[in-house]
Computed example of a mutant assay.
Amino acid sequence: MYILTGFLVLFAFQRILTTHFHFGYETDKEKLNKKTGGLGAFIGMTIHSFFDGVSIVAGFEVSGELGFLVFAAVLLHKVPDGLTISSIVLAAFNDRKKAFVASVVLASATIFGGALVWGLSHTGFGAEVLGESFARIGLSFSAGVFPYVAATDLLPVVNQSENRKAGLYVLLGVAVFYAASWVVGVVGLE
């Protein structure tokens, strides 16, 4: 239920509350104002970063193995996220200070998301909702975001590509995930 809720909340956010911005083959230049696009990307990536923090701490609350895997996955895309938001804000506002602040806000949103889950899970306030631990709900909710992003952003780009390697990279990514999960289990981080 919470995975579906996460999926639908992102759907509602991108389709009802804001404009869903695509860059690349789907860009509609008439609808995309630089500043509006930059602000929309900043808001979306800040929410994404918040749920990165939620996912990391909730993963550790569920198990050490899961927490380590989520942490590694988030860590691998934090540098590209920082570069992406800095580039978008710099292009939209032509201001290096705003670009730097945007990347600091993204990092802070991750820390805030993790701190919120940790605080709710360890203070007793909100530790359980409807008989479920807050950490499991947070992890399930944020897990629902990933199928949405894969279905609406990743797979359409892969399917539009003339390059067959793009599909192989998707399969390789899944294989790397399962191999990493196995290694973490063997090492004993469970």
Results as ranks from 00 to 15, higher is better:
Asp28Ile: 13
Ile111Val: 15
Leu154Asn: 05
Val145Gly: 03
Phe11Asn: 07
Ala143Met: 02
Ala58Gly: 05
Val9Gly: 00
Thr152Ile: 09
Val9His: 00
Leu17Arg: 02
Phe134Cys: 06
Leu130Arg: 14
Thr123Lys: 07
Glu61Tyr: 07
Ser181Cys: 02
Arg96Glu: 11
Gly131Asn: 06
Val170Asp: 08
Met1Arg: 04
Lys34Gln: 09
Lys78Gln: 12
Ser108Glu: 04
Glu190Ile: 06
Gly173Cys: 13
Val104Arg: 06
Leu106Lys: 03
Gln160Glu: 14
Leu75Phe: 15
Ala58Asp: 01
Val129Gly: 01
Val62Gly: 01
His122Gln: 13
Ile3Pro: 00
Val105Ser: 04
Phe146Gly: 00
Val186Arg: 11
Ala102Glu: 02
Ala143His: 00
Ser49Asp: 07
Gly64Val: 09
Lys98Met: 15
Gly24Trp: 12
Val149Cys: 05
Val176Cys: 11
Lys78Gly: 04
Phe134Leu: 13
Ser161Leu: 09
Phe13Ile: 09
Gly113Lys: 02
Leu139Asp: 00
Tyr2Asp: 00
Gly113Leu: 07
Gly119Leu: 12
Ser140Tyr: 05
Ala109Glu: 03
Gly185Arg: 15
Thr152Val: 10
Leu76Tyr: 03
Tyr148Gln: 06
Leu75Arg: 03
Pro80His: 12
Gly6Leu: 01
Arg96Met: 09
Gly144Ile: 01
Val174Thr: 11
Val101Gly: 01
Leu189Asn: 05
Phe93Asn: 08
Lys31Asn: 13
Ala180Gln: 05
Lys35Trp: 04
Ile56Tyr: 08
Ala180Gly: 14
Thr18Tyr: 12
Val9Gln: 00
His20Asp: 15
Thr152Asn: 11
Leu155Tyr: 14
Ala41Cys: 04
Leu120Thr: 03
Phe11Ala: 12
Ser140Glu: 06
Ala72Asp: 02
Gly119Tyr: 14
Leu8Ser: 09
Leu69Glu: 13
Lys29His: 12
His48Gly: 10
Val158Asn: 08
Thr46Cys: 10
Val74Arg: 03
Phe60Asp: 00
Val129Trp: 11
Ser87Arg: 10
Leu120Ala: 07
Thr123Gln: 09
Ile16Val: 15
Leu90His: 15
Gly124Arg: 04
Phe23Val: 05
His77Asn: 06
Leu106Trp: 01
Ser87Phe: 05
Gly37Asn: 04
Ala109Phe: 04
Lys34Asn: 13
Val105Leu: 12
Glu128Trp: 06
Gly44Trp: 01
Pro147Tyr: 11
Gly53Thr: 03
Thr27Asp: 11
Ser49Gly: 12
Ser121Arg: 07
Leu130Tyr: 08
Gly64Pro: 08
Phe100Met: 12
Val62Ser: 05
Val186Trp: 08
Pro80Glu: 13
Val89Gly: 08
Gln14Glu: 12
Phe71Ile: 01
Ala91Val: 06
Ser142Leu: 02
Leu106Ile: 11
Leu66Glu: 00
Leu168Tyr: 15
